[in-house]
Computed example of a mutant assay.
Amino acid sequence: MSASIIRFDYQGQPVRFNAEGWLHATEIAARFGREPSMWLRQPDTVGYLAALARALGVEIKSSILEELSKINDLDSSKASTQAKLLRLSKATGLVKTKAGAPETGGGTWLHPKLAVAFARWLSQDFAVWCDLHIDDLLHGTQTPTKSAMQALDEAIAAMEADKAIASRCGMALARWKKSRKQHIKAVETATRRAQLLLGF
């Protein structure tokens, strides 16, 4: 896990990812009055982690695989079972913990492919927000410091600048006709994201 931590804001609160897209689950769960271990101790979560680990080709010890195959037979109301489920969650390699305070990067970190599933457990609105930002982070389409409003302002400014040039010059008009759809799409995309992120 990289030491580089990237911060986004969700409703004025920090949401941190590392450079590979791992979500700082401890920090975000606290804002919803929860702890990541609550989610990681659920049999459905552990089953999902095991399936995702298989799909991603993560190597898991055969003894752990055997235990994972029997999770549905466990009584999840028992403390010993919950401890076992938590241990199995971490054994998938998709959950990492780091000692220290959350402010300094300590806590539970989740693989990028788990971020949306975890976010759904916390809040549907946060799940949508998280999905958009994970995608942007992994594909490099939006920098973490650029807000949704900045992206919208930039898309509108680029469109208006090309439109102004187009009105003055025939060649620019031809270029405007070619780029018009791209600008409109960029403005529409930025508008939808701004609406999702800012709640309007």
Rank of each mutant, 00 (worst) to 15 (best):
S4K: 02
I6W: 03
Q11M: 07
G12N: 05
Q13T: 14
P14Y: 10
P14K: 06
F17A: 02
N18E: 13
N18V: 14
L23Y: 01
H24G: 04
H24Y: 00
E27G: 13
G33Y: 06
E35H: 11
W39R: 02
W39K: 00
L40G: 03
R41W: 04
L52F: 10
L52A: 11
R54W: 02
L56S: 00
I60Y: 00
I60L: 00
K61P: 07
S62P: 06
I64A: 01
L65N: 03
E66R: 04
S69G: 11
S76I: 03
S77A: 12
K78H: 08
A79F: 11
A79I: 15
S80E: 01
T81P: 02
T81G: 12
A83N: 15
A83R: 11
R87S: 15
L88G: 05
L88V: 12
L88Y: 07
A91K: 07
A91H: 10
L94M: 09
A99S: 13
A99M: 12
A99H: 11
E103F: 14
G106D: 09
K113I: 14
K113R: 15
A117P: 12
F118M: 10
L122N: 05
A127C: 11
W129R: 01
L132D: 03
I134V: 15
D136G: 01
D136N: 07
L138P: 01
H139E: 06
Q142A: 01
T143M: 06
K146S: 13
L152E: 01
L152H: 02
A155D: 08
A158D: 15
A161R: 14
D162T: 13
I165K: 02
I165F: 04
A166D: 12
A166R: 11
C169T: 05
G170T: 05
L173V: 04
A174R: 15
R175Q: 10
H183V: 06
A186M: 05
T191M: 08
Q195F: 07
Q195P: 03
L197Q: 04
